[in-house]
Design a protein around this nucleic acid. Sequence first.
DNA 1: GAGTACAGTATCGGCACACC
DNA 2: GGTGTGCCGATACTGTACTC
Length: 249
Amino acid sequence: MPTFHVDVSQTQIRALFSPPLVQATLLRRYKRFLADVRLSDGREVTAHCMNPGSMKGLTAEGSLVWLTPHDDPKRKLQWTWQIAHEGACPVGVNTNLPNHLVAAAAEAGAIEALTGYTSFRREVRYGAERSRIDLLAEGHPKDARPCYVEIKSVTLADAGTALFPDAVTARGLKHLRELERVVAQGHRAIMFYLVQRADCQRFAPARSIDPAYAEGVLAAKDAGVEVLVYSAQVSPEGITLGAPILTTP
DNA sequence: GAGTACAGTATCGGCACACC
DNA sequence: GGTGTGCCGATACTGTACTC
């Protein structure tokens, strides 16, 4: 079961955590999917980490984290890690959440670049390698081209600049190439980065971490792939879609 | 050093089955 | 026959540990 539900109002698009989050202290993160934490009552438990990336800067021992509890007997782990902290800044670490949030925002017409489409489908297979696109928008009355949207969760930042990726990602590069091929076939393609933290005013590919990916972003833009970056306000209550932010090469 | 298996969960497609 | 529901397997995600 999802650990959140998306609430769409006239003024904002929010992913609200359900059940409410529980505060804890991070002890260690290990094996990609697992993190040991200490709850406020002193219990030490293992939480599932939805973010399989390196989570650079977010795994400091002793840092504040927020979890959702589960009572599903089919799950091995009864806690899911949702929010980390870098200093005082809360950072959303659930990589599943941006896909839902962006899809709901697109359907609600809250993302200008995706207004006008009447059909939005998630996880649609496409391309020669049968990858799955995060969101496929169709049915635009003035643009017959389907629009392929790949959504990435951004958690890394440096001095007000959001950075992606936080580790070398061959798969991310593959997604960029797939989008280039989609454009070459006459379709529309968008690389959508959702920055799950509120302390960034800019976005840039993390060239120092993955130069190949940074070059891949530039090549994709040259090929006609659109790059969108939106911020998000993160709190223990939920994650709210913010405004577009600037991208720098 | 290179290649591979593994880790936990969400999601989707395919299939079987029940019901109208 | 058509529709709805539930179950199961495949897939996605990528760092780490292990084997060759």
